[in-house]
Design a protein around this nucleic acid. Structure first.
Lengths: 179, 179
DNA sequence: TTAAGGTAGCTTACAAAATTAGCTATGTAA
DNA sequence: TTACATAGCTAATTTTGTAAGCTACCTTAA
């Protein structure tokens, strides 16, 4: 098989196997994290994504106004989907949707008292489970990991941009060999 | 808002904001990685998941036999979905599906010459893009990150197990406070 | 100031992606 | 054998995204 990376820092004995193990590990961890979200939701009678939307509204609400687009961007799902999920949360009495005062295109999303009570109820087991999920992080590892991940996000953006550029170029294959 | 973790190693000035930033960053990076997979696929006329299945069959094939379940487990998708995608790849002449010889329930998946040619053709730009995506990884950071991620996967499994245990227990809320 | 064109946010209706459930065939162990 | 487990497939269902349309807002310029 051809190599999937060429930077020598990422090759071990000329092989990209370790590199691919890293990527696979990242996906594996995220899959577990999603399973745990699903479980948190189940504990309070919600689907994983419903719980995630609810707690996101609550957390983002601390720092400012939250509308449909805020949540869609934060969770990387479509706005239409946020419309659907928040309507369900509204019908359950956990979230309120009020037309914005300053900009009436925006729908202001707020968690109701009932919603907060539900999140409070969940918090103890959520903390216990998160503590186990991240038990392997020492203070130093936590600091390092956060730093690396934020750098990776920035590099990811640049990689997406490069890909877009190469896709536009008809002779991109040849060009890629030079890069 | 109640805290989502309680380990002091993960709290900064009594706040879990940095911790949540880490989790959000991990999801953000993976989203970019998926976008890049989509782009790799597009370059060879495949959807992202089709490209991913194709290259997974090729890579896993190096180490042993690959069947539908192998891929489903590796990519964490349902077996039924792998059935669908591999049928498409088969109809495109990129993958061969042959009933297993020793166990006739298993369907042996192999990449055809045409499939390998496609992957070879893609490889240069794939390498260029991956090099950019992971440009921020020094040798030492790569080593550290791989180590941390594999530990996190193991902790994730334990967290899922704890969650299952707490879900089964009616008085789990109280118990979680003690943990 | 106000009319016109453009943009942004939300929703509705529809389409696609992916899962679950149920079925058949094969393998395994009592 | 009989019973149970596993692999893959098909069909139905659920989940999520896309496209179109509506309303509200924001320029610009007459």
């Amino acid at each position: 098989m051809p190599l999937t990376v060429s930077r020598p820092e990422l090759l071990v004995a000329g092989s990209d196997a370790e590199f691919r193990r890293l990527v696979h590990g990242l996906f594996g961890f995220l899959a577990r994290h999603e399973a745990i979200r699903e479980g948190h939701g189940a504990r309070i009678g919600l689907a994983g994504i419903e719980y995630t939307v609810l707690i996101s509204i609550a957390h983002l609400g601390v720092q400012g106004e939250v509308n449909v687009k805020t949540i869609a961007d934060h969770l990387r799902v479509s706005g239409a989907f946020v419309t659907t999920v928040t309507r369900k949360l509204q019908s359950l009495g956990l979230v309120e949707k009020t037309p914005g005062d300053v900009d009436r295109r925006r729908i202001l999303l707020t968690v109701t008292d009932k919603g907060f009570r539900l999140l409070d109820e969940l918090a103890p087991s959520q903390r216990a489970i998160n503590d186990v999920e991240f038990a392997c992080l020492t203070r130093e590892r936590f600091r390092l990991l956060l730093e690396i991940v934020e750098d990776l996000v920035a590099c990811g953006d640049r990689a997406v941009a490069l890909q877009r550029y190469l896709a536009a170029d008809p002779a991109a294959g040849a060009e890629a060999k030079i890069l």
